[in-house]
Design a protein around this nucleic acid. Structure first.
Length: 300
DNA sequence: AACCTTCCCTGATGGC
DNA sequence: TGCCATCAGGGAAGGT
């Protein structure tokens, strides 16, 4: 489940290696991840890669004339394959699930290949095909329109307290559901939502319009904190996530609550609980993250 | 408009 | 061993 830290780790691993590389060949196997006719991607041939940016969980590969936009969904992998290095197999890690130890040759799940003129290949692999690949003409207005309602970008200048607070207006759903809503803050997924709520000591079922000012403030600060930590550890590898070189991150060892049902809360020692909120597994410490006891209205 | 549910998709896992 | 049900979940789509 690549979220902002995993997508950012992939971006950082790729951007300097592929910038100024020329695309020699495009291979796109028919698959629902493509939001256009796969043949349309032929326009990328002979284009030079200029940049790789991230917005929320999206990666934007820019060439002179085009934007190729990737969303990795649940199991998407974007890796760089070097012709002079040996391919490895897919190695299953006992504790964390399916992972890959090194670069790989294309298999039945590799839907998109960008061959560079020096022999290297950018491979998009996605077992469950929840990912998406879009193609746009290189036009900033089109890109802005594409990202239309996407929410605040956590490490940008737009991430300000007043903007953050304004996004609560008119929202009453649970705070966990709001965190997962990409029109609120972009890039948060199930793992970092739970981590941020734990850090801010907010119960995931709290209705968004019931959060106190200080709870919102703590959440505003917790979000970039947990995301930054995720990036520092190279992302969270639970099942399918690997960086651009096929390596696992180590942030799974740093998680405070996610996936730790029944284990001790690192803050207070109470047992971590798992419930379902917004159709998603949700982990929290019932002692550290209390539901605010409803304040009785003062009588007349 | 906000919110909720269903669905997509595959591989791992557990019960029998 | 094999078979089947269940689970994981980001986001689109459709309904209220």
């Amino acid at each position: 489940m690549p979220e902002l830290p995993e997508v950012e780790t992939i971006r950082r691993g790729l951007v300097d290696r592929i910038r100024e590389a020329r695309i020699q060949e495009i291979l796109a196997r028919p698959c629902r991840v493509f939001r256009m006719e796969p043949a349309a991607l032929e326009v990328l041939r002979d284009q030079t890669i200029e940049d790789l940016k991230r917005r929320g969980k999206f990666l934007v590969l820019s060439t002179q004339d085009h934007f190729c936009i990737f969303h990795l969904g649940m199991t998407g992998q974007l890796t760089l394959r070097h012709p002079d290095r040996p391919d490895g197999g897919f190695v299953r890690h006992a504790a964390t699930g399916l992972q890959r130890a090194s670069q790989h040759s294309p298999d039945q799940h590799t839907h998109f290949e960008i061959h560079l003129d020096d022999g290297r290949q950018i491979l998009y692999r996605d077992v469950r095909k929840f990912g998406r690949i879009h193609l746009l003409d290189r036009n900033d207005d089109l890109l802005e329109e594409f990202f239309g309602r996407l929410g605040l970008e956590p490490f940008s200048d737009d991430y300000r307290k007043d903007s953050f607070l304004r996004l609560f207006e008119g929202r009453r759903l649970s705070i966990k559901a709001l965190l997962l809503d990409q029109t609120f803050v972009a890039g948060i997924g199930n793992i970092y939502a739970d981590e941020a709520l734990f850090e801010a000591r907010v119960h995931p079922l709290t209705p968004s319009d019931h959060l106190t000012r200080s709870q919102k403030t703590r959440l505003f600060e917790a979000i970039p904190l947990v995301l930054k930590k995720g990036i520092q550890f190279g992302g969270t590898s639970l099942r399918d996530y690997v960086d651009s070189e096929g390596r696992s991150g180590t942030h799974q060892d740093e998680l405070q609550v996610y996936g730790r049902k029944g284990l001790a809360c690192p803050r207070c020692g109470a047992s971590i609980r798992k419930i379902v909120v917004a159709q998603r597994g949700t982990h929290f410490c019932a002692r550290c993250q209390r539901r605010r006891t409803s304040r009785r209205k003062p009588g007349p």
